[in-house]
Computed example of a mutant assay.
Amino acid sequence: MVVDDHPMWREGVERDLTEAGFAVVASAGTGTEALARFPATQPDVVVLDLQIPEPNGVAVTAELVRQNAAVKVLILSASGEQADVLDAVKAGAIGYLVKSASRAELIGAVDRVALGDTVFTPGLAGLVLGEYRRLIDEPAGDSGAPRLTERETEVLRLVAKGLSYKDIAERLVISHRTVQNHVQNTLRKLQLHNRVQLVRYAIEQGLDTPGGD
């Protein structure tokens, strides 16, 4: 499913994906349309713009993942701002491309995301590392905030330097899949931290209910 509020851009992405052999089962121009069409079409991959009429791309990502944890969300946005990237990742997106990406980069990203791989650019790796450092340095403490292992940190640093997963695997003498798993684990931990924050907020506001786990 392709979600973008600019018809010409949306149609161009649909055309590129169709020509590459993907079946575009739905398209939408707003967050509301995307959420309405998702249950009936159940796409494997959603290519989603962040800046769409409400609910925005971050909120849509979170709701799609809540409805179907198997869906793969690839953000295709004009924004490369740190806050936007981190918000999308925390909401459950496993890929993030800026709209300056080439057609080949888009097709490659959809291919990888469809297989469950993470489209992790050097810039995104650097942002995630910075976010973990910020979490660890929070004066309020980080109890409940998941930490990165030494190997996960090492892998992210190498991604941030621009090394490919293949190069990292060769340098660390591990498999390509192991590198991929480390990268995916870092995303899951960041998403988990986001949920931990939400739970803390609910408890602080007296929104928690008894009987939950």
Rank of each mutant, 00 (worst) to 15 (best):
V2R: 01
R10D: 00
E11Q: 07
V13R: 07
E14Q: 08
L17G: 08
T18V: 15
F22K: 04
G29Q: 03
E33Y: 05
A34C: 05
P39F: 02
T41N: 15
Q42L: 06
Q42M: 00
Q42I: 00
D44P: 04
V46L: 05
L48W: 10
P55H: 09
P55E: 11
N56R: 00
G57S: 10
G57M: 11
V58W: 08
A59S: 06
A59K: 06
V60P: 06
V60R: 03
A62F: 03
V65I: 15
A69I: 04
A70K: 07
V71D: 03
L74T: 01
L76I: 04
S77C: 04
S77K: 00
L86Q: 03
L86G: 07
D87H: 14
G92F: 02
G92Q: 01
V98W: 01
K99E: 00
S100K: 08
A101K: 01
E105D: 03
L106E: 11
I107R: 09
G108D: 14
V110S: 10
L115S: 09
G116K: 00
V119E: 09
L124S: 07
G130W: 01
Y132G: 06
R133V: 14
R134S: 11
R134V: 08
L135A: 14
E138Q: 13
A140R: 15
D142C: 08
S143N: 14
A145R: 12
A145M: 11
L148H: 06
L148N: 10
E150K: 14
E152S: 13
R157E: 15
G162D: 09
L163F: 15
L163N: 10
L163Q: 14
S164Q: 09
R171S: 15
S175R: 02
H176E: 14
R177P: 02
Q180T: 09
N181F: 10
L187F: 08
K189Y: 05
L190E: 07
Q191C: 04
L192P: 00
N194R: 14
R195S: 12
L198E: 14
A202C: 03
A202I: 02
Q205A: 12
Q205K: 07
D208W: 12
D208S: 12
D213V: 12
D213M: 12
